[in-house]
């Protein structure tokens, strides 16, 4: 039953009239690092939010580790959102305690150790921390768990290349080998070498789901090069068929 860690069948999601996902079928096995690639607005964040239970699908079913999305799956999913979710009054250690309370797979000691290696003082108030430091704390929260599924929404967007390298290394060295990492990004060249598989998402649909090695073997070029071709903006020749 649980050969696949992620299973999506005919998943659709619309916000009001606006469709975000238009029929996603997806299966991802355990122990993989998977890149969810696509331009902005292609539905990457929506898919991740559906998997971590922040959204409900309009149609279709999703399962993580064979279970429908709910408290049981939330207990095994470690989610890095694309924004800060901290309450001002907390310190990093308060958050660590909160995570230790709620997630059985969270290691407080590991979190403290990660802070030390990242140069973050865990007893500082979050309010006084810089944006970059807060992002590090959030990464620590996510990676100090040994979850079955890590959902990382744009973990390397908006940081400089050195920090990017650092984040990828943190993910590589801290993720539990049994877990699967699904990370969304539009900066492919930076993540390509850490990925097992890639999923190309375009206009709410999966265009391609393939291993990186297979793409390089078959296409004789990098995933980045293939991505650029697939998502090349076509030239616009006026409006055919009336209103836009």
């Amino acid at each position: 039953m649980n050969d696949y860690l992620i299973q999506c069948r005919g998943v659709r999601k619309s916000y009001g009239r606006k469709p975000a996902l238009t029929g996603v079928d997806l299966e991802v096995g355990p122990g993989r690092i998977v890149g969810l690639l696509g331009p902005n607005g292609s539905g990457k964040t929506t898919l991740i939010k559906l998997l971590c239970g922040l959204l409900r699908p309009t149609a279709g079913t999703l399962a993580v580790d064979g279970e429908r999305i709910g408290p049981a799956t939330k207990a095994v999913v470690s989610y890095l959102p694309d924004r800060m979710y901290f309450a001002d009054w907390m310190r990093a250690v308060d958050l660590f305690q909160l995570f230790r309370d709620f997630y059985a797979d969270f290691s407080y000691e590991k979190a403290i150790a990660m802070c030390r290696s990242l140069g973050v003082e865990p007893k500082d108030r979050l309010k006084t921390m810089s944006k970059g430091t807060k992002e590090k704390v959030q990464l620590v929260l996510v990676m100090a768990r040994s979850a079955k599924l890590y959902l990382l929404d744009e973990p390397i967007a908006g940081v400089d290349p050195a920090a990017r390298d650092f984040i990828l290394r943190t993910i590589l060295t801290n993720y539990d080998g049994e877990g699967t990492v699904l990370l969304s990004t539009h900066l492919i060249s930076d993540v390509e070498k850490v990925l097992d598989e890639v999923i190309f998402l375009k206009e709410g649909r999966i265009m391609l789901h393939e291993t990186v090695d297979a793409i390089r073997e078959q296409e004789g070029r990098s995933v980045d090069a293939l991505f650029r071709e697939v998502f090349q903006a076509g030239p616009v020749f006026g409006m055919e068929g009336g209103m836009s």
């Binding site: 122990g31 990828l168 590589l172 060295t173 070498k193």
Partner: peptide, 17 residues
């Protein structure tokens, strides 16, 4: 595998292969 993968900055599965 993990040490080598971390050193090269690549996926452990790739290093394994």
């Amino acid at each position: 595998v993990r040490e080598l993968a971390a050193e090269a900055g690549v996926n452990p599965n790739t290093m394994q292969r």
